[in-house]
Every structure is written in C-alpha cells, then in structure tokens.
Amino acid sequence: MDATIAFLEGKARALRRKIVREIGWGKKGHLGGSCSAADLVTALYFGKMRIDPRNPGWPDRDRFLLSKGHGALVQYAALAELGFFPEAELDRVKTLGSILQGHPDRKLCPGIEANTGSLGHGLSIACGIAAGLRLDGRKSKVYVLVGDGEQSEGQIWEAAMAAKAFKLDNLVAILDRNRLQAMGPIVERFDSNPHADKWAAFGWRVIEIDGHDMRQIVGALDAADQGGPTVIVANTVKGKGIAFAENNPAFHNGVMTKEQYEQALAALAA
C-alpha cells in the first residue's frame, strides 16, 4: 500500500509539472483548477481505472469525464504521461490545429470521452454513458469530475435526480471542492454549501475526503465500488502544489511570469 501511495504521489507531481509546462510563462492557462484536481485525476488514471492507452476505444474500459472542462490541462497531462499521445503535443496546447483544445474534444484527442467546457453537461453525459454501459451488460465504471463552482448550474441537479432515478450504481461523481470560482470565493456568491447534505438529499451515497491525501482518495474510490450513485466530496486547494497560486483567484486562468514558471517547476522537481 505504501509503495502504491508513493507511486501515485510521484505521478501527481509529474502531472503538476506537465500542467506548468503546458501553460508556460506569459500565457494564460487554467492553473488553479487543474492543480486542485491533480491528485484525484492521478488516482483514477494511474490506480483505479481500467484503461488501455494503446486502445483508447476499448469497449470495456472505465470512463473518465471532466465536467469542469476548463481543467483540461490536468487530463492532458495524465493522458500524455500514459502515452495516449506523444508528450510533445503538450507544448502545442491551445495552438491552431492542436489536438489539445482549450477544453477537451473527443474527436481530436485520444482518451477524451466527451466534449465538455460548457459547465453542467458532463455529469449528464456520464449518466447517459453509465446507462448505455448497463444496457450492454458491461461492468465498466464511469467517473466524472465536477467543480464546486459548477454546482450553480441547474443541470447538475437534473442529472443528480436522473442518476438516482435510474439507479446508476456504476457512476461515481467526484466533486473538486476548491472553494473558488472564476471571480472569487464561492461562499461570497451562490454558496453551494453544504455539498454533502445536498447530494445526500438527492439520494446519492456521499463520501467526504481530503482531496490531496492520496490514501484517502484511493480509499474513497474503492469504497465507491459498493453501490451508488456515489459522490466523493473532495476538499481541495485551488492551485495546490504551486505556492503562489494556492487559494489565489488570479490563477483561475492566470499568467505566470518567467520567474514564477521557473519557481513552480523547481518546487515540483522529481
């Protein structure tokens, strides 16, 4: 177990390095929300999920959807690390003709399951995939990462009711609760707290964890196998692992200076 946790923590550091590299310096990028989700995404791609980078369309694979599509950089980092596409693509993020769009595009990028970016869609798409997999008798699980700012979208709650109504026990939602939306703290806007109570009231099984404690993440993902739909409320820090970006709304979609870029990479050195 300790070796597994250490392996995953190493991978999470590697993903954060890749996120910083994808953005570069002097350019805008969704650093905060990518880094808050990095440990969660790592535990899924490098631990929990059954996937095959050489066969992205394997019908029995587990699925991961990034409903908070603006966090694409962390998913691209994971897919590159796994070899879904050459790592050099990471240097072409958001450039003309790149497979790595500002938000995930399944037609362009191997390993992307759904087009997300308009907030609130991903959970519904995940529900549909879960229902389709069940119709086909497949045992695959569907994981979907949602943001806490995204909880303001009414469609999230439409999907929450649908998942309960259709008893989608192959569906796991992970709430990246980093407490900041684009323009500032969630509690100062539409306060979507208390998350756990809301999801429980909608009939979901709720597991609440520290979203940066790899041991807790792995435990929660395993616990989520015991029926559902399950939501893992993961308490996270926006910008986690990048000192100047932590809890800093400016880095929702911010620009690093050359000094900050180098400082971030040095702090994340292997």
Binding site: R106, E113, A114, G120, H121, G122, S124, I125, A126, C127, G128, I129, A130, A131, G132, L133, L135, D136, G154, Q155, E158, A159, M161, A162, A165, F166
Partner: peptide, 26 residues
C-alpha cells in the same frame, strides 16, 4: 421499456444524457 428513458421535465439533462448513450453506440 428497457430502452426508453423517462427523463422527466428536464430537457437539458435529457440532451446531454442522450449524448452519453450515443457515446456507448446507442
């Protein structure tokens, strides 16, 4: 009945849910 989904009065979820079904070949 197994292939019919009553999505209630929630058209937005219905459309995205259908996308998910299509992604599994439906």
């Amino acid at each position: 009945p197994q292939r019919h989904f009553e999505m209630s009065i929630a058209e937005q979820n219905m459309a995205s849910f259908a996308a998910g079904l299509a992604l599994t070949g439906k």
